[in-house]
Amino acid sequence: MTSYSLFLGCTIPARLPNYEVSARKALSRLDIDLVDLEGMTCCAPPPVQSLDLETSLAIAAYNICLSEEADLDMITLCSGCFESLTVANETLKQNEPLKAKVNGILAEAGKEFKGSIEVKHYLQVLSEEVGKEKIKANIARKMGNLRVASFSGCHLLRPSKILKFDDTEHPHAYDELIEALGAKSIWYRNKQKCCGGLLRGYADDIALAIAREKIINASKAGADCIVTICPFCYLTLDLGQVLMKSTYQEEHNLPILHYSELLSLALGVDVKELALEFHKIKIDSILNKIG
């Protein structure tokens, strides 16, 4: 059993209980122990970075400090949190003057960034630590030829110089984890392109247009569903389809799942425990297919 401090972030607890519940259940079945620490805040993602980069570093570092104090590596479910925390963690580890500056700020909050822990995305833990074999060995439900359009989003992989997970031009870790569940990960056009999620709220029309292309490309390739690992991609594509109905008068009805949900299903978690009612686009077709 490996323990991690769970960095939950803002969006998941506020909007996606179905993500959280499936992740907690799946990870616990794979012997990953999640520790909830007191006092965590927002990770300072791009919207905060846009206001002040150095403040954002300090906020991210503050959260890392809590994990350092608990002597636990950190795990995130959200790619946005993963990216902002890792960028802060790695940058501060390497840039002494910046670290000193940030520690000057953190001193006000009684913290000191030491650089003693790692930040990991749960997909990274599944891929590098748990491993496909262990997942395969625990599978309790067949995927019945499910054709999955995998979508890893941006901030799991990029900026690759800092995140150092998988190969950003030829990513394979995520697809392998999907195939490990018995589903088929299919190719579709512009698979690695952004979903536009970060423009939601500021330029909804653009965000929606980008998301729409994604939905269309995946549908064209014959996907049964898109599986995401980031709450923003999920919201953009799931909720987005509701908006597409009113904006474009289109009904795509392409189910969007979190990877943790697919994983929970494969591991045999009772469907009733997964709060699937939170999906805007119903996933009954998927449930039927995998029995």
């Binding site: 939950l8 607890p13 506020a14 909007r15 209980p17 959280e20 519940v21 907690r24 909830d36 620490l37 007191e38 006092g39 965590m40 805040t41 927002c42 002040d52 150095e54 403040t55 300090a58 906020i59 503050y62 809590l66 000057g104 700020i105 953190l106 006000e108 909050a109 009684g110 913290k111 425990e273 709060a275």
Partner: peptide
């Protein structure tokens, strides 16, 4: 609504947020 929902589906209660510490940080910067 979500807080209630969380309880219903068996999610643990949310931990307190370090708002105070955060405000101090935001004040210095």
């Amino acid at each position: 609504f979500i807080e209630r929902k969380r309880e219903q589906i068996g999610l643990p209660p949310l931990k307190t947020i370090g708002t105070e510490a955060l405000r101090k940080i935001l004040a210095v910067t």
